[in-house]
Design a protein around this nucleic acid. Structure first.
Lengths: 199, 199
DNA sequence: GTCTATAGAACGATAGAC
DNA sequence: GTCTATCGTTCTATAGAC
């Protein structure tokens, strides 16, 4: 590993940010948003609170940075799958067939998501920042769907932005149901619904 | 109003329970599940903590009783609308076109729902009691859909239980998105999606 | 007189202030 | 880290229905 002394300030800063985000992902997943303290996140990354506050303006900001990474990681992934030319329902099949490990991550992420949504509803500034992300996520979904439909030469059943919103709602709702009662979302419920909705 | 002295014990008990549930609905809606104290609920109903604990075994139990009422109030309502012979999408149109007051209730209930779900995930006993309700809600949805499809003489696009689960997921997801960004669920997104899914 | 719904005090845990 | 306030829950006393 490179010695830190050899890094420029920018590189060092980026490295710190990376470490903090990774640590935050773990600590948030384990303790939830409220349960996780900035101290714990900093310690898990090998830094102190000061490092966190030099990179993020507050706990909300830290979570939103994590969410941004999540969105840009999931978006391209979805696009890649759709561009591969596989039937549209395999997108969902993939989700259901994925390893338990992956599902566990989804569980953690879902729980954190809902926790932060409730938290965001208490503050107008936080709510609106989250609302922006929702719009962006929807637009990315829509763009992704558009590519898909032009690729297979079909017209979307309803407006793309509406379809994208529906997919987001379905994803969130299914994952929420799955948190409470995993049995309810087995047996291809998700994939069959997606297929019905998209084809 | 009748004097309480004239009531039999059973009647008095039922009256107390009714008052407590009504008060709980209001207080929970206003302060959320964590924010609402048993004391506040009892006072709002004109009783004390003792009354609450004589009727419900604990705070979770109080919420679950409220949820049971909600489910049996919404279930028949949906069935009634479906049996009226109106086109299936009007069910959703109704929701979107309903008065702001109604929407505000939905917002409160949604927030409370998600809060309790997160709370339930911390205790296996509470989680499983909530999971039972989810199954029952799905089955009621499914029964309601079955009536509808036999009435119009069509076959459901996918298995009824799966369709019911999808509807629940969609409903929850849409309401969650709506809490964060109401603009995203305007313009008939919900009704068009339902129509697409059910027809 | 007996029984039970409810009031209200007491307790233990937990979160937030300092 | 300590202290305090708050809240869920338990326990006991009592008033009123039977």
């Amino acid at each position: 590993m490179e010695r830190k002394r050899r890094l420029t300030r920018e590189e060092a800063k980026a490295e710190t940010r990376r470490a903090l985000l990774d640590a935050a992902a773990e600590v948030f997943a384990e303790h939830g948003f409220h349960g996780a303290s900035i101290d714990t996140v900093a310690e898990a990354a090998g830094y102190t609170k000061g490092a966190v506050y030099s990179q993020f303006s507050n706990k909300d900001d830290l979570y939103l940075a994590l969410l941004d990474e999540h969105l840009s990681a999931e978006g391209p992934q979805a696009i890649a799958q759709l561009e591969s030319g596989a039937p549209i329902e395999s997108f969902a099949g993939e989700i259901e067939a994925s390893l338990p490990e992956e599902l566990e991550k989804m569980r953690d992420w879902g729980r954190l998501t809902y926790e932060f949504i409730l938290h965001a509803l208490r503050s107008e500034t936080v709510r609106s920042r989250l609302a922006e992300r929702f719009v962006r996520a929807r637009d990315e979904y829509a763009a992704c769907l558009e590519k898909r439909y032009t690729a297979i030469g079909k017209a979307p059943p309803i407006e793309l932005s509406k379809l994208a919103t529906a997919l987001m709602a379905l994803e969130n709702g299914m994952s929420m149901i799955g948190l409470v009662n995993p049995e309810l979302i087995t047996g291809g419920v998700y994939s069959e619904t997606l297929e019905r909705l998209l084809d």
